[in-house]
Design a protein around this nucleic acid. Structure first.
Lengths: 546, 546
DNA sequence: CCTTACACGTGAAGC
DNA sequence: TGCTTCACGTGTAAG
């Protein structure tokens, strides 16, 4: 981290500009340590555009003027914890202040006014041996900001494993724990499908940790109890499973870069300008003070800086550290080396930036795509769960098992239904063969006291004989046996008609009883007078009717 | 591509070494054009280790000696298509030769012997204005090798869209069309689950296009008809959907790098050495011949080179092209610029390498993981298809639709089954209630001519009256009306018994007819003598029996 | 350690 | 063109 203090002006300016864009911060200051136990401004810049003023004052110079006043200040290193100076004195590689704390611990009035005017929500102070790097954000910092910083300055710590930021040897206060109001498990939202729009809280929650330049409110409403926030709640709470957050964060960093090609081209040009610049400005500022004694009040843990600083840029630069004794003709070569250092610093950032560019393009459509895909996945999971609930409960809860068991269940059910319907059909046919009589009986209950009907049975296709159904309904008080006997006597004397089967019922209501009789008859001969037969039957039973 | 010819020795050597490692090639030659219409060796190297000799001859110098003999040759540019020279003469940015073609078109005997001794399977010749770049592989080149080359030399063409290699303006012969023996659509393999092992053809097919240094045969068995190859067939055939291949290829390039940290560290050191080298060797070789006239026999399309060469490194280097007129004191600055060019060439490769490192670690476990995931997905899709086939055919083929329709279908089927079973149960009960009669009738067809039974109906729980079924089977020749009349007369005079319903059938066989009668009776009083009643009925109809 | 399962974001293709 | 669906490779967790 100290190497940025050792750079020449031009590469340092490029680097700082790059750094500011990388983190989307509003301003950046390099406070250099002076042996007179104070910090003074070495370099830095303030980007007006990052926080657009809500009041439409067209004079953009107030914050700039305050920044100028701030940067011309000199900060005596005292035994308090005012900023800047606190991180340097206590060897803190990361120290973050927000809101009222920042204003309270500011060292002087122009600094405080600048913070307010520039709407600085968060300031980060990174101490090293050469001084302190201050960096301000116009929005509230998030958890991964520290990790981002660490990745920037000590990239080799993050080359392989994705360690958490809390595992770093950083003694600063953990920022913004965001008191979550949900300890419920991520219940897959359990709500019906909701229609997402692009400015719904989901999207802003996706952007909440990204230094954006728009006026989108990057603060999530903490206590929004609508159902729409529940769907993204596991993404923005600290109680979520780690991998989701890590994946979400890893994809969505640095969304503010406009166009990769233009950016890369401009960066390339800047680097070329750095490299091809003549070495005239190689001695524009004195070499940094070579103090190896630790700052006061922290003598024991100064080697905390040694370990992270052993980067690849230092490992393979032998001769850099002891080469400051001779100051003869190797000055140009030394400047060359310094330029190399600066270039590799730029290279580090540049590569990471470029890599981020082409590994993710979080444009608006990409965000929309992401949300749509999430919604689709959630819908699929809901369907899976709904399907799983229909299955017999003893089965596996796998997706594949759900599918296969559903398949088996469905086919077996289909076969079952087929078999049942077949069986039902033949049962119903069987019953209907008998139940049709009942239905005909029920349907034939006319108002008359005696009702005689004759219907031809369809199976009687023969010419010699035919089968008919004779149905007699009789409302009578007399017992049903009388009617039956009379009809049977009548049939007995009619020799062309023989009885095949008969069915009789007596339906007794409170007032009267109804005898229902169905006889299947076989009639021989083709010249059978149906109406005469019907009238004869009626006359037989007519006097029994009441 | 020409810029590599303009480099200094040291950065060029570094760059060539990097290039060789990037593509895992065995040797590399820069053939520079000389105005005397010939090509001569400018730079290059041969890596012995990439092809380990099968014969355990401990003298590693034969191939080296042959390479030395090869590189000291001078190739006259003739009107034939021998290599090197063919690509340069015909402005081919990519020209590939394999096997016998390579040996046939070699220009002299040492070259041919070197190819054989070094086991060069594929040589790639890339022509540009300054000469020709030759690059040899000890394994067979694949389709994406051309694309890799193009990505290396013209990276801006590949920055956004993933164009196919065939869409490039490359007039070379399309290499290794791999005559596919499958024109069937990717039928989702339609085979049952297979057990994958790590050295199954799937894995080698995943690695087949990667320049590996082991002796793994990178040739896929062309006509392997086992079912195990079918699952990966859409990945290695040219008839596959493009995006799958592109995605698969994009993830699996450059697997041969051993350790990223060591590589990066070494590269950083090399770059630092390049940058910090004194400018003493800046004029070790003459500036390249500034000929703008195209080579013979290809005057019309030389601007093919102009378009791909408009890289970002050239776009933002104003003053490089017209600065060759003045050759005064700006020489050191020009060398600086050239060093910048070389550095940015290295930077390009370096960044891509590093990016590949940390964007994918295609280790063995990763490959296994990938294959497992593919298998899982395929299983899920098979289940989906199987489920889809069970659904009514008019529905959507969506996954979500399949799930929801399956859900509805399953619930409706379940309800249907429940209803059917319920209806079936009561139907069966109803049928059994009547079928029991028939069965009893059928079972009761004793050898006696008359059979009278009395059974209690279960619903008759009252004490005052009970319901009984009287069943009479009578084998008789007389008409059934007689029996009915007699029984009904008997019931009529029995005043404690009333008829509720009756059912009669006559079953006529060839020898005799059987009358079957079932009467449901209501018996009043609790002191009813069942056996006496039964005997009385028997006596009534007994004389009718035959 | 290895296996299995899942969610994620992304690119491609169809509509 | 925008929207939807899908397959892919990867990270992560549980067993």
């Amino acid at each position: 981290m100290d190497s940025v203090f050792l750079l020449d002006e031009i590469p340092r300016a490029n680097f700082l500009r790059l750094l500011m864009r990388s983190f989307g911060c509003s301003y950046l200051c390099l406070w250099s340590y002076h042996p007179s136990s104070c910090l003074h401004f070495l370099d830095g810049l303030y980007n007006e555009e990052n926080n657009q003023p809500s009041t439409s004052s067209a004079t953009p110079s107030l914050a700039c003027t305050l920044f100028h006043a701030y940067r011309t200040s000199i900060f005596i290193l005292l035994e308090d914890d005012h900023v800047p100076g606190h991180a340097f004195r206590n060897n803190l590689p990361y120290f973050e202040l927000q809101g009222q704390d920042l204003l309270r611990l500011a060292s002087n009035e122009p600094q405080r006014e600048f913070y307010q005017e520039a709407r600085i929500k968060t300031a980060i102070f990174m101490g090293c041996k050469s001084g302190e790097i201050e960096l301000g954000l116009s929005n509230v910092s998030q958890v991964n900001m520290k990790m981002e910083m660490m990745k920037t300055w000590f990239p080799e710590e993050f080359s392989r494993q994705s360690t958490h930021a809390d595992q770093l040897p950083v003694p600063s206060s953990s920022p913004s724990p965001r008191p979550g109001n949900d300890q419920n498990p991520p219940s897959s939202s359990s709500s019906s499908l909701i229609s997402l729009s692009m400015d719904s809280p989901e999207y802003s929650s996706l952007l909440f940790n990204i230094p954006i330049t728009t006026t989108t409110t990057s603060q999530i409403p903490e206590a929004q109890h609508t159902t729409t926030t529940d769907i993204l709640q596991p993404l923005i709470t600290p109680t979520l499973p780690h991998h989701q957050a890590m994946q979400a964060f890893a994809r969505l960093r640095n969304i503010q870069f406009p166009s990769p090609e233009i950016e890369i081209a401009a960066m390339t040009r800047a680097m070329l300008a750095v490299l091809s610049s003549p070495s005239s400005s190689s001695s524009s500022h004195q070499p940094p003070p070579q103090f190896n004694t630790p700052p006061p009040a922290a003598p024991a843990d100064q080697n905390r800086f040694i370990n992270p600083k052993a980067s690849v840029f230092k490992k393979y630069m032998p001769g850099l550290a002891p080469s400051n004794t001779q100051i003869n003709a190797h000055l140009s070569r030394q400047s060359m080396l310094k330029r190399s250092i600066s270039f590799f610093q730029n290279l580090n950032i540049f590569m990471r930036t470029r890599q981020r560019f082409q590994e993710t393009r979080p444009t608006t459509t990409q965000l929309h795509h992401m949300m749509s895909e999430r919604k689709r996945r959630e819908k699929l999971n809901e369907s899976f769960n709904a399907l799983r609930s229909l299955l017999p409960p003893g089965t596996k809860k796998d997706k594949a098992s759900v599918l296969t068991i559903t398949k088996e269940c469905l086919s077996s059910l289909q076969a079952q239904v087929a078999e049942l319907t077949k069986r039902n059909q033949q049962l119903e046919a069987q019953v209907l063969k008998e139940g049709s009589h009942e239905e005909a009986i029920a349907g034939g209950s006319s108002n008359e006291r005696v009702d005689v009907r004759v219907s031809h049975v369809s199976e009687s296709t023969s010419e010699e004989s035919q089968f008919i159904d004779l149905q007699v309904n009789l409302r009578t008080q007399r017992p049903a046996e009388d009617m039956l006997i009379r009809i049977l006597e009548f049939l007995k004397q009619a020799n062309t008609v023989s009885l095949l089967s008969m069915e009789a019922n007596t339906h007794i209501t409170e007032s009267s009883s109804t005898a229902r009789l169905i006889l299947r008859l076989r009639v021989e001969g083709s010249d059978w007078d149906e109406s005469a037969f019907q009238e004869a039957v009626r006359r037989v039973v007519d006097d029994l009717a009441q």
